[in-house]
């Protein structure tokens, strides 16, 4: 554990708490892409399949349980109590391509051809692009609530800081893996436009609006 990874995990934790707060406070999931939330649920379930077979630490297990449970809760609540508050007509990204593309990528690029390893790799590739339906929806509407922008910033910072963690680990431990590094870079590049607007507008107290 190093400071980059710790802050990354805390940002991830914060992002979900901010999202839950947004939904509760505004009593609405407006502006949130259901498809992205569904993809994150698939990401965490497929990545943490080793939850009961591979013990790392109490911290690791507690975080895994929280990420699976909270993403499941959000998907469930968006289909139930908050079903009428968001508009599926705005959430039109074709996630079949992301699900299929991540499957192809994990079949080509993986370290071992085993059940757990393939699902782990699938989750890594899928996570890289899981934000696309959300970004696509925002590019259509051209704006986002400030609290939603904070949620997305914390979520993007999580994977961005993991990339820094891997570079740091290579420098200090000689530890290196290409797959999570490349996937983290892809996600961070996809986020570039969002980060630019976030830093230039939201951090200065303005509304998140695309130019």
């Amino acid at each position: 554990m190093n400071v980059f990874r710790l802050v990354a995990d805390l940002m991830h934790l914060a992002s979900i708490l901010i999202l839950l707060l947004k939904i509760r406070k505004t009593r609405s999931a407006a502006g949130i892409s259901f498809k992205s939330q569904l993809l994150y649920l698939i990401v965490f379930v497929t990545r943490y399949l080793d939850l009961f077979t591979h013990w790392v630490s109490l911290y690791n297990t507690a975080m895994k349980v929280f990420f699976i449970a909270s993403s499941g809760y959000i998907v469930y609540q968006m289909q139930r109590r908050y079903r009428a508050t968001w508009d599926p007509a705005l959430d039109t990204f074709r996630i079949e391509f992301l699900l299929g593309g991540a499957a192809v990528m994990s079949l080509i690029f993986h370290t071992k051809f085993t059940f757990l390893e393939l699902f782990w790799t699938y989750s890594i590739w899928l996570e890289a692009v899981a934000i696309l339906p959300q970004l696509f929806q925002m590019s259509r509407t051209g704006e986002a609530e400030t609290i939603t922008a904070h949620y997305l910033f914390a979520l993007g910072a999580y994977r961005g800081l993991y990339v820094v963690n891997w570079i740091y680990r290579y420098a200090t431990e000689g530890y290196w893996e290409w797959i999570p590094f490349l996937a983290g870079m892809v996600q961070t590049v996809l986020y570039a436009d969002f980060f630019y607007v976030y830093f230039s507008r939201v951090m200065r107290g303005k509304k998140f609006e695309l130019p």
């Binding site: 990874r5 995990d9 991830h12 080793d50 591979h54 790392v56 690791n60 975080m63 895994k64 990420f67 071992k112 757990l116 390893e117 782990w120 993991y162 963690n165 891997w166 530890y175 893996e177 797959i179 999570p180």
Partner: peptide, 10 residues
């Protein structure tokens, strides 16, 4: 899956 590797991260 290397012990202490990316599989042990989140």
């Amino acid at each position: 899956a290397v012990k202490g590797g990316a599989h042990d991260e989140l």
